[in-house]
Amino acid sequence: MKTRRDYILDRFSVTDALRWENISTAWNSVGMGRYFVNSFVVVTVSVLLLLLLGSMAGFALSQLRFRGSSALFLGCLAGLFIPFQVIMVPLARIMADTALIDTYPGLILVYVAQFLPFTVFLMTSYYRGIPPEIIDAARIDGNTVYGVYRRIMLPLGTPALLSVGILDLLFCWNDVLMALVMMPSAENRTLMIGVTSLRGQYSDNIPTFASGVLIAAIPVLLVYLFLQRQIADGVAAGSTKG
């Protein structure tokens, strides 16, 4: 939180006060308010979708044996290993052809597709640690499969869901490349793109950029600080049941 001048003269000098002008420069220079809304909408919807699909698929792949389930799991794993660079150009073309480019749903779709393998993999690993007897007992009690999912798997999966939710949130929130490819027009950009463009070609204004990064990191940090308690509680709850 220094001025650029301080930074060049002595990068480690401890400055006496937090410099608000760095923060307000960062905030005002690129219309961060608009970007924040974009990020908020896209990331919230993406993470919720990811958690819903991830927990369902994780339940199905870990506890329900159906034909092709292991093939499906392997397919999911393979999806995990696709570097974004391989699919970037074809994806841009498909999205442009389907008019999804430059829309919220387009970017949401890309985020969900990109991070779903990770989410499914984690939920599957987690749910495999739950003894099948619990599910069998619930089924004997007359629960439908959906009932088991809602009454047993969702509550039991809370620690994993919260953890993977935080990570998905972090990935989507901090992503720059996918958002750049998918959101070409200026008013649709996300917060991290705005922050990244504070850096400039020669990275010569580190203090302003750092301020931008810190502002952008606050929401994720707050969510984490709020949720880690819940995770810890969930851990305690889970271990008594196990």
């Binding site: 389907t98 008019a99 999804l100 480019i101 430059d102 829309t103 919220y104 749903p105 387009g106 949401i108 779709l109 027009s185």
Partner: peptide, 10 residues
């Protein structure tokens, strides 16, 4: 997503 995109088309 598909249907929503029509309205949001650039």
């Amino acid at each position: 997503c598909g249907s929503a995109s029509d309205s949001g088309k650039a």
